[in-house]
Amino acid sequence: MTEASTSDTSAQTATDEPDAVDQADGETPAEKPSQPDTDLLIREGDIAADYLEGLLDILDYDGDIDMDVQNDRAMVAVSGSLQDLVGQRGVTLEALQELTRLAVYRGTRVPSRLMLDVGGYRDARRKELAATARNAAEQVREHGELVRMAPMSAFERKCVHDVINATDGVVSESEGEEPDRYVVVHPDTD
């Protein structure tokens, strides 16, 4: 196990948001938690990697694990053709990410926003959703009416919001309850 040195030089440590695990996907663009220090995020990646490596070993799956820190988040990527750890539309990946965040929490006692990817699934899905979001934006601008998109996971909705945010003339928000929560794209009336 790699132990990152946890120097307490950073003035702002992560806040104790009770719901941080639930909201950890940061779907709402406005949500900006205080900046966690890099040492903590590196430690998150190390704990996650140990947890996942143990699982791969037991299952006799081949995969390399890479850790990184991006946008104030620990990112852990397992490479390899491991469709069983991704599942239909990423459901197994989301489940494994949730367990991995809990494993990290056990080590750090700080709710984790760690993002897990397996076999490049998230990048591929982000590209697909960007195309879908651009189509929806086009449709909204053409007809001036709102478009309701299909139910999506928090990660998927975030991918859509990111594209809509960067597109003139349209705005987006999420509606409905999990697991059927979906994105609505509106004309930007301002």
């Binding site: 299952l59 750890l85 599942g87 489940a95 494994l96 949730e98 367990l99």
Partner: peptide, 17 residues
């Protein structure tokens, strides 16, 4: 887990493999 969330995650991963 809250509302059975963690148990569901465990079942999902185990069912998948």
């Amino acid at each position: 887990g809250r509302g059975g969330r963690t148990a569901r995650a465990l079942r999902q991963v185990i069912g998948s493999v």
